[in-house]
Amino acid sequence: MDGRIVVGTFRDGGGENGMSELVRLTDVTKVYQGGLTGALNGISVSIEKGEFTAIMGPSGSGKSTMLNLVAGLDRPTSGTIAVGGTDLGKLGEAGLARFRRDHIGFVFQFFYLLPNLTALENILIPAQLMGNVATARAAELLDQLGITDVADRYPARLSGGQQQRVAVARALINNPMLLLADEPTGALDTHTGEQVMELLAGLHRQGQTILLVTHDAKLATRHAARVISVMDGKIVDDARLESPERAPSDVIRVRTEEVSR
């Protein structure tokens, strides 16, 4: 049906609504070659299916490293990472590449579109790598992301916001079980950044699990109910935020000065 790809072995056994674990990091460390200190120093965390989680922390704290490891773009120095029940450490290089292609969507700060392919062609790459003709799915995504009319343009002729939409569509073409976004709004102005975030929020409402790295606490808390704070390669806080309907006066109060005398 419309080019959708069934995620065979990775569909987990849990119900569609009930919380079930999608990602688990256990005592993960990462020391880069030549790195004086570890980029990650013992990270253990579990991400539920359907969660929208934000990762925040100062520059160099290890956020991108964490995302890259979860994506299978790199391997940890020690510890284990399981995504959708698969222990990434047990996969060989080819297996890891296949895992990435089939199950992970990744959106970066600087889009990384191929300049000599049109928007549509860029979006279709991951599907073609799977040997799938996903034109129907691509059309659906173009429409959903509001970029149908620029589908045949080359990246150089797209605005930053449009390029990021194309990158999001490319990340979603294979219906990944996990969408990773590393500062997706970092290169965009406030308004365009908010639009891209709205888009991610819409995907989340449809059930997409999202792990987002951002420096913008306003945007993070708007959409993500969970904020993980990282510092020096460690998780220093894991906040699950509440979302009750509060009366305006319980959220904000304008103080008044009375006339004295």
Binding site: A217, K218, T221, R222, A225, V227, S229, V236, D237, A239, L241, E242, S243, E245, R246, P248, D250, V251, I252
Partner: peptide, 26 residues
């Protein structure tokens, strides 16, 4: 003071979330 700072940060995160929801509603 890291514990104290972390608790305060969490309170601000929750406040941001509440404000975001209020802005949306408004």
């Amino acid at each position: 003071l890291q514990g104290m700072l972390a608790r305060q940060k969490r309170a601000y995160l929750q406040r941001l979330r509440d404000l975001n929801r209020l802005e949306e509603r408004a």
